[in-house]
């Protein structure tokens, strides 16, 4: 899968309270509504300047803090194409995969890409191309198991497929 988009850049340690403020956690099911509050309190300019299809590039430990899935959901439903970071906090990383929001670990990426650059990511090979400088950056390849969940459209479609013929569903229904 090739993902191409304009870069919206952040620093390191972007936590989930910053991505999705706690006061909106009472929104539990309306995903379009969640998307209206990405970075709202800490970086209000994001909602004005970011566009559908943009790729977030960040430093280390992106998504640290609370396990709130809304942090990944709001980005997914805003239309963010992928998040590339030097490293991720583990729960955000899992949430993003489960929602089929591609997350790519790329050590050294913040030095090689500027805000507003256009990049192209090959999810299978982990190769990232900076279209402005034509520089090639090698990111960590996603394990096949995780790539499969993303390609299936997230954990729920993946599970549906998997459970279709399994014993579990026959036992339950």
């Amino acid at each position: 899968m090739l993902i191409r988009g304009k870069v919206y850049k952040f620093a390191s340690n972007i936590n989930t309270d910053v991505i999705y403020p706690g006061k909106y956690l009472s929104i539990t099911t309306d995903r379009e509504e969640m998307a209206k509050h990405c970075f709202e309190a800490a970086y209000p300019e994001f909602l004005e300047n970011a566009k559908k299809g943009d790729i977030i590039v960040s430093g280390k430990n992106f998504g640290c803090g609370s396990s709130r899935e809304q942090a990944a959901t709001c980005l997914k439903y805003f239309g963010i194409g992928a998040v590339v970071a030097e490293s991720f906090a583990r729960i955000f990383y899992r949430n993003a995969i489960n929602l089929a929001l591609p997350v790519i670990i790329a050590p050294g990426i913040s030095q090689k890409i500027e805000h507003n650059d256009t990049i192209e990511i090959n999810l299978e090979t982990g190769i990232i191309k900076n279209m402005r400088t034509t520089e090639i950056i090698k990111a960590n390849r996603l394990p096949p198991f995780i790539l499969k969940i993303i390609n299936d459209g997230g954990l729920i479609p993946y599970l549906k497929k998997k459970l279709k013929n399994s014993n579990i569903i026959r036992r339950i229904q």
């Binding site: 803090g65 609370s66 396990s67 990944a72 729960i91 899992r94 949430n95 489960n98 954990l155 599970l159």
Partner: peptide
């Protein structure tokens, strides 16, 4: 809940996960 690590205090493998994987 991210602070599920609390229960490691009892020797439990306790960790926070997201909502969708909890559905799983």
């Amino acid at each position: 809940d991210s602070h599920t690590t609390t229960h490691g205090a009892f020797g439990t493998f306790a960790t926070g996960i997201g909502a969708t994987e909890m559905a799983g």
